[in-house]
Design a binder for these strands. Structure first.
Length: 600
RNA sequence: GGGGAUGUAGCUCAAUUGGUUAGAGCACCGGCCUGUCACGCCGGAGGUUGCGGGUUCGAGCCCCGUCAUCCUCGCCA
C-alpha cells in the first residue's frame, strides 16, 4: 500500500479511534483559514471529516495554504477529540477531527463552475450541471439517489435469485419490429442497407426463453425508444424484465407484491401492506380519467348525463345528442381560490383542459341554497338539487364540467383532477414533509382488465393496447371475431402515486390464437411470418403457458428518491431533446465511418 | 410538428414596467482575525443583459427573427 492511500473513509472517524494515526483521501469541501490554523472539510461519498493543519508544522501549513475547493488530498495524522464545546453535531464525524502531520495534494482543481457543496443554497441551472455532470454527481443528494438505485438493484437480484429466478442476458442488436415505439437503428457494416434495431424491451427474447424451458427469468435490462422525452421519460431507460412459465396472473402479482414490499422495506424502511389493491381499467377511466390514477386523494369524476339532460343548457344537450357525455369534478372549498381569470371562457382552467381537446369548461359555484355562475340560469332548482347530490357538494365548492366525446372528457378531467389535486393540496409528497416517509405516502395499485385492442382512427385498424402477444381473457375469446373492442386482456399495470411503474401480461402460447390476433391487427399471414416468424415457430414447438412483467426502474427510483425528474436518478442522462450535454452526443462521425457502413 | 415558461456577473437572482454609470447574495482575488465548521470583518476585481435585426431622442424592458434549456400536447405496442 502506498503511503498516501486511505486507511479510513471520511465518514468513519469517531471517538473510538482517538489517538490512532489514519490517512484520509477525499475532496476539499470547504476551507476556513486562520493565521495559525487551517480547517479543511474533507469529503468523500461516506461523509465529511474536519482536518486541521497547524502552523507548528510549517511544511504542512505551507501546503495547506495553497489548496482550494475540490482539490483531491491525502492527509495523514492523529484522530483527536475536539476541544470541549467545539463538536459539530451536524457531522457524524463531528466529535473528532484529524490533526494533520502529512499532506499530499493528489490533484488540483480550477474553481468549479458552480458550487458542489449543498447547504440549502439554490442549485445551478440543470443544463450547466449536466454539462459538468461529474461535479454534480459529487453532491450528496445525487450520491444518495444513486446509492438507493444500487440498493433497488441489489434487492431485486437477491430476492429473485432466492425465489429461483435466473438472471439471463438478451441481445442489444436485434430486429426492428415496426409495432410500438420508434426503433433506434444501427446500420450493418457487413450487409449494407440493412439494420439492427436496439431493443425497446427484451419482450420476444424472454418469451423464447420460456419456450426454451428457463421457466423463471429476469434481467435488469436497458431499453431504448426513439420518442420525444418527458420529465419521466428518457430515450434509454432500465427495466426489471421478468417472465415465468406455468403460471396465471395471480402468480405474477404475488411475486411482484413481495418484491415491492422488500424494496420499500430496504430503501425507505416502510412496510407496504399486501395484497395491493386492484382497480379495473374501466373504473380507473370513469372515476379518475386515467389508466394510472393517483389514488393518494379522491376528487372522483362524476357522471352527469342523466341530470344535465333535464337542464336547459344547450351546449350539454347538443353533446348528449351527438353521443357524447357530460362529466364533472368538484373542487372543494375553491370558490375563493378561483378568480374570473381562472373560470371565464378561455380562462386559465379552460385553457388547461383545451390542451386535452376539450372545447370548454363549464362551472358553477355552490352557495347555501343555490348555484351561481353564468350558466346557473339553465338549471332549474330541481336539477340544481340533483347536481348538488351527485357531486356531494356544499357551499364554497366549485363544480367544473366538461362535455365532449368520452375520450376527450376522460383525458381532460383526468388531467384536471391531477392539476386540482396539486393546486388544492389534496396530498403532500413525502419528500416535502418534515417527517420520514410512511406507507400511507404511497398509493400502490394494480390496474387490470385492460381492453386488448384500441381502435386507431388514423390507421383505420385495431392496434394492440399492450402488445400483440398479450393473451385475451378466457371469457372474451368468443368476441375476438364478432366484437374485438369488447375483448379484455390478461394485462396489468402497476401504478404508484400516478406513475406507471410497471406493466405486463399473460402471453399467448398458441400459434393459432396468435395468428388470429395478427389478423385482427391487420397483419396477413405472410406479413406476420416476415416479422415474427421465429415467434410463431417457437409457439408451435411446445410453448408453455407463460407471462411476465417489466418494472420501470428509473421511475421506481424516482418514487423512492423523492423526485419528479427522471434525470435525477440517472448518472448520465440526456436532456429534453436527447442530447448528452456532457459528451455532446449525438455528434457527426467521420466520412470513413459512413463509408464502412455504406451510408456515403 | 403545436402550446407555455425561462435566458442579466463564475452561480442564484434583482433592476420601481422605456430614462443617470445595470445592483445584491454566494463564489473568486487581496488584507485582517487563536477553534472555525455554510467562520467572521474590511477591501477589490468581475457584464456583448443568449444571438441578430427593428421601433425610439433613449431598449435589459417594446416588436420581429433565431438559438438554448425546462414543462406539456401529439408520440411512447
Amino acid at each position: 500500500m502506498s503511503d498516501w492511500q486511505r486507511t479510513h473513509t471520511c465518514g468513519e472517524l469517531c471517538e473510538n479511534l482517538v489517538g490512532t494515526i489514519v490517512t484520509l483521501n477525499g475532496w476539499v469541501n470547504t476551507i476556513r483559514t486562520y493565521p495559525d490554523q487551517i480547517f479543511i472539510d474533507l469529503r468523500d461519498r461516506y461523509g465529511i471529516t474536519q482536518v486541521v493543519a497547524e502552523i507548528d508544522n510549517p511544511q504542512v501549513f505551507q501546503i495547506a495554504q495553497t489548496i482550494s475547493r475540490e482539490f483531491v488530498l491525502s492527509v495523514t495524522g492523529q484522530v483527536s477529540k475536539r476541544l470541549p464545546g467545539k463538536e459539530n453535531l451536524k457531522l457524524s464525524t463531528g466529535k473528532v477531527e484529524l490533526k494533520v502531520n502529512k499532506i499530499k495534494i493528489l490533484n488540483s482543481s480550477p474553481v468549479p463552475p458552480f458550487e458542489v457543496t449543498e447547504f440549502g443554497s439554490e442549485l445551478a441551472n440543470e443544463d450547466l450541471r449536466l454539462q459538468y455532470r461529474f461535479l454534480d454527481l459529487r453532491r450528496k443528494s445525487l450520491q444518495d439517489t444513486l446509492i438507493k438505485r444500487h440498493l433497488i438493484n441489489h434487492t431485486i437480484r437477491t430476492f429473485l435469485s432466492d425465489e429461483g429466478f435466473l438472471e439471463l442476458e438478451t441481445p442489444l442488436l436485434g430486429k426492428s419490429t415496426p409495432e410500438g415505439a420508434r426503433d433506434y437503428l444501427v446500420p450493418s457494416r457487413t450487409f449494407h442497407g440493412e439494420f439492427y434495431a436496439l431493443p425497446q424491451s427484451p419482450q420476444l427474447y424472454k418469451q423464447l426463453l420460456m419456450v426454451a424451458g428457463y421457466d423463471k427469468y429476469f434481467q435488469i435490462a436497458r431499453c431504448l425508444r426513439d420518442e420525444d422525452l418527458r420529465a419521466d421519460r428518457q430515450p434509454e431507460f432500465t427495466q426489471l424484465d421478468l417472465e415465468m412459465s406455468f403460471i396465471e396472473i395471480e402468480n405474477i402479482f404475488q411475486v411482484i407484491e413481495r418484491l415491492t414490499q422488500k424494496i420499500f422495506q430496504n430503501c425507505l424502511g416502510i412496510t407496504i401492506p399486501l395484497p395491493l389493491p386492484k382497480i379495473s381499467y374501466a373504473e380507473a377511466m370513469t372515476k379518475y380519467g386515467s389508466d394510472k390514477p393517483d389514488l393518494r386523494f379522491g376528487l372522483p369524476i362524476v357522471a352527469l348525463d342523466e341530470i344535465v339532460a333535464r337542464s336547459e343548457f344547450k351546449v350539454f344537450k347538443d353533446i348528449l345528442a351527438k353521443g357524447g357525455t357530460v362529466r364533472g369534478i368538484k373542487a372543494p372549498n375553491a370558490a375563493d381560490k378561483f378568480s374570473n381569470t381562472d373560470l371565464k371562457p378561455g380562462g386559465k382552467l379552460a385553457e388547461f383542459v383545451a390542451n386535452y381537446g376539450a372545447k370548454g369548461l363549464a362551472w358553477l359555484k355552490v352557495e347555501e341554497s343555490k348555484f351561481s355562475g353564468s350558466i346557473e340560469k339553465f338549471f332549474s332548482p330541481e336539477v340544481q338539487g340533483d347536481l348538488r347530490k351527485a357531486f356531494d357538494a356544499k357551499a364554497g365548492d366549485v363544480l367544473l364540467m366538461v362535455a365532449d366525446q368520452e375520450q376527450v372528457v376522460c383525458d381532460a378531467l383526468g388531467a384536471l383532477r391531477s392539476h386540482l389535486g396539486n393546486l388544492l393540496k389534496c396530498y403532500t409528497n413525502w419528500w416535502e414533509k418534515e417527517t420520514a416517509p410512511v406507507a400511507e405516502d404511497f398509493s400502490i395499485a394494480w390496474v387490470v382488465d385492460f381492453p386488448l385492442f384500441m381502435w386507431d382512427a388514423e390507421e383505420g385498424r385495431y392496434v394492440a393496447n399492450h402488445h400483440p402477444f398479450t393473451a385475451p381473457q378466457d371469457d372474451d375469446l368468443t368476441y375476438l371475431e364478432t366484437d374485438p373492442k369488447r375483448v379484455k386482456a390478461k394485462a396489468y399495470d402497476l401504478v404508484i402515486n400516478g406513475y406507471e411503474v410497471g406493466g405486463g401480461s399473460i402471453r399467448i402460447h398458441s400459434s393459432e390464437i396468435q395468428q388470429k390476433i395478427f389478423s385482427i391487427l391487420g397483419m396477413d399471414e405472410e406479413n406476420a411470418r416476415n416479422r415474427f416468424g421465429f415467434l410463431l415457430d417457437a409457439l408451435k414447438f411446445g410453448a408453455p403457458p407463460h407471462g411476465g412483467i417489466a418494472l420501470g426502474l428509473d421511475r421506481w427510483a424516482m418514487m423512492l428518491a423523492g423526485t419528479t425528474n427522471i434525470r435525477d436518478v440517472i448518472a448520465f442522462p440526456k436532456n429534453q431533446k436527447g442530447r448528452d450535454l456532457m459528451t455532446g452526443a449525438p455528434a457527426p462521425v467521420e466520412t470513413r465511418q459512413l463509408k464502412d457502413l455504406g451510408l456515403k
